[in-house]
């Protein structure tokens, strides 16, 4: 059987709304599996239950029911946390400490000795581009620098599983690329990365598999390549914004007109028919290509279907 880094089975969590007897469901019935050695993305709209799910994994919140494992140990078993790294959504650290002292504090919790800690801290601060700022207190750091520090502390114990909540938050495009490279490097070392992100392009670029959650339930889960693959469809882009609902292009699928172009998909067997129809309408062809959904398409379609 495949080694799973994370497994959740029918997790439920409700919170009581302050000042009332009413309860709000944060996670309704969530099951997911994260294979070891992969980058796994947890996606979902705001309020879908992503943060609560991460907190349950980290032992910060307790599920009402359901079960799960973290690195093969039951949820709540603190020994699993020795091989766990975590980057919170916002950089929440003791800002009166310097980057070096901050890493020293966190390193002690993993039982690292001074020599090991010094060596590892130096390596990581260099890796995230903070080698020259290690003596500054964290309150002098910009948001991007704090995010880099957060990544360094998440990797401090050379973890087998790294849980990241919005890892590129606050970073400029160069910083985002650097973080992406670090994550791929960590994955190549055989570690598992579990990330929650709103940046779909980032997830699409680096994740092997994803789980889309909506209203506290897993609505789509699987390998990204399989989820994005669409057999037998062609995407056509035409110049000009036209209504395809009626007329010769009435058979077009998922048509949308914006930014001076009209995009739609057709069954591959209808490609020439569509091109003829477009020419008949006096529209110029911009592009025609086999259709592959973007993660954004998949995400929006999934959320739309769930809502309906």
């Amino acid at each position: 059987m495949e080694d799973l880094a994370v497994e959740l089975d029918s997790i439920k969590k409700t919170y009581r709304i302050a000042g009332t007897r009413k309860k709000k469901t944060a996670v309704a019935d969530l099951s997911l599996s994260v294979p070891g050695g992969e980058i796994f993305g947890l996606l979902g709209p705001n309020g879908a239950g992503k943060t609560t799910t991460l907190k349950i994994l980290l032992g910060l919140v307790y599920a009402d029911s359901g079960s799960g494992t973290l690195l093969g140990r039951p949820l709540g078993d603190r020994s699993a946390h020795k091989s766990l790294g975590f980057l919170p959504e916002q950089p929440y650290f003791y800002t009166f400490l310097t980057a070096e002292k901050g890493l020293a504090l966190y390193g002690k919790f993993f039982g690292m000795d001074k020599a090991e800690l010094t060596k590892r801290s130096k390596y990581l601060l260099d890796l995230v581009g903070l080698a020259h700022d290690s003596h500054l207190t964290l309150d002098k750091f910009s948001k991007g620098m704090l995010q880099r520090f957060g990544i360094a502390q998440a990797l401090l114990n050379d973890p087998d599983l790294v849980i990241l909540d919005e890892p590129s938050s606050g970073l400029d495009p160069v910083g985002q690329k650097e973080v992406r490279d670090i994550l791929l490097h960590v994955r190549d070392e055989g570690k598992t990365i579990f990330l929650s992100s709103h940046q779909l392009s980032e997830v699409e670029n680096i994740c092997n598999s994803v789980c889309i959650v909506s209203a506290g339930r897993s609505v789509t889960e699987g390998e990204l390549a399989d989820l994005l693959k669409v057999e037998g469809l062609t995407r056509i882009v035409l110049s000009g914004e036209v209504d395809t609902a009626t007329g010769p292009l009435g058979f077009a699928l998922n048509a949308r007109a914006a930014d001076g172009v009209t995009r739609f998909e057709v069954e591959s067997g209808d490609t020439y028919r569509a091109l003829e129809a477009a020419r008949g309408m006096g529209l110029d062809l911009v592009s025609v290509e086999p259709y592959h959904r973007s993660l954004e398409d998949l995400f929006l379609e999934t959320i739309k279907e769930t809502a309906s």
């Binding site: 980290l58 032992g59 910060l60 603190r78 020994s79 946390h81 020795k82 766990l84 975590f86 919170p88 916002q90 929440y92 650290f93 003791y94 966190y106 919790f109 993993f110 502390q153 849980i163």
Partner: peptide, 11 residues
Amino acid sequence: RTIYNILSKPV
């Protein structure tokens, strides 16, 4: 939320 980064470790 500094507590998150302490209690997510083996503490």
